[in-house]
Design a protein around this nucleic acid. Structure first.
Lengths: 215, 215
DNA sequence: GGGGATATCTTGACAGTGTCTAGATAAGCG
DNA sequence: CGCTTATCTAGACACTGTCAAGATATCCCC
């Protein structure tokens, strides 16, 4: 019985691009339920496929989550790039914009953010994931190098700036999605523009004023 | 058959202080397996009690985790206090010490830290938990007030300092237990004392130099 | 084009999970 | 002592992730 092949070829036994479909479904499930209530069978059901299907592509549930985290870094960097492209053309503005993109991503994809940065279910030895995470880190070091004029990999003081800025952006992002910053009531009443300026100021505190200092 | 009543009264049907025993067992299980692999039945087994026993004391698994998080804030604040008591007697040193205690706690109890700050399984409406979390926050605002001479609750610039310092300490703590800071290779080779000084410097960057500025 | 090898997906089974209910046991109190 | 209440056990249920066996489609070489 050849069912409506015209509408969708969904009736096909082979899915075509199930790997992508599963990742899409998993991302939705993740954002809806959070990591702690993530269900592989629910992902399969959402993708209209049997509960055993994901195993062939990802091995197990953690494999799927690892792939999802890896893909997440693409969006993560893209959001930072977008912020940077809108920023004025000086190193500090670019750095602040990058940090705002960091926070943007956390707010828009809180569960994915947690998966990427705080989950034990991802395989950190996975080369694809490690490469993606490293790219995000290198991006930050380049910003600091542009400001301080020296490669943080070779200079301890510049690396301190890297850790400071990273810590600030990450901390603000994590606390924001945990809804911990609501106590600072004035934040809720701020316009987006004011909020960005407020966060930018804080992010730039990570940069040491002792520019170019090194051993 | 009255079994050895002398050694432990464990043979008693009623446990005596099962609530505390369950919390202790849960804390061990949590640190061993992480939140994402936490099992209520494993907790019951560790406490040598039936799988249904926890329900009577905590309602459900999330109730147990909420109580555990609430108790965690006690240790959390205690660790900060210990650091502060060892610090020299000036407001900035106290603030930095408090931040180091923040990081200490995360390193010693990573899973509990994640439960307290990044889990969706705790009931944030729980009054006991909210009160504990608030106490930790107020502690920080007092440090900033001691430095800037104005209550952050009434001054936006002082509150910015609060969020900055909190973000830094939290970000460094979270990234540390995620083992993300290993790339900054020199950190591993540092003595505890040097590492503390390094983190202290970063934490204090959260304090704005424009002291006492206010609208 | 045909046909065997291979990739892909389904199905059923299994142990483990959290929660609910009913019942057993202990403790408290009149 | 006996009734009430608190506490804990035991069994059932639906759901979970993973595994093994089988069904089905696609690929590729003859």
């Amino acid at each position: 019985m050849p069912l409506d092949k015209t509408t969708k070829r969904k009736q096909s036994y082979h899915h075509g691009d199930l790997e992508r479909s599963l990742l899409d479904a998993a991302e939705i499930e993740l954002e809806e339920n959070g990591i702690e209530r993530f269900s592989l069978r629910a992902v399969a059901k959402r993708a209209s496929v049997s509960h055993g299907a994901p195993a062939h592509h990802f091995g197990n549930a953690d494999g799927l989550l690892t792939a999802l985290a890896s893909r997440g870094y693409g969006k993560f960097i893209a959001m930072q790039d977008k912020r940077e492209s809108l920023a004025s053309d000086n190193p500090k503005a670019k750095l602040a914009a990058s940090g705002l993109g960091y926070i943007d991503f956390a707010i828009e994809h809180p569960a994915l953010f947690r998966l990427m940065f705080a989950s034990e279910r991802t395989d950190k030895a996975n080369s694809s994931l490690a490469k993606a995470a490293n790219a995000a880190f290198e991006k930050l070091t380049e910003h600091i190098e542009a400001i301080q004029g020296i490669d943080p990999h070779t200079d301890q003081f510049a690396m301190a700036d890297v850790l400071a800025c990273w810590g600030i952006a990450h901390g603000l992002a994590d606390l924001t999605i945990s809804q911990r910053l609501g106590r600072a009531t004035f934040l809720a009443g701020m316009s987006d523009q004011d909020r960005d300026a407020f966060f930018s100021d804080i992010i730039l505190r990570g940069v040491s004023p002792h520019a170019g200092r090194h051993a």
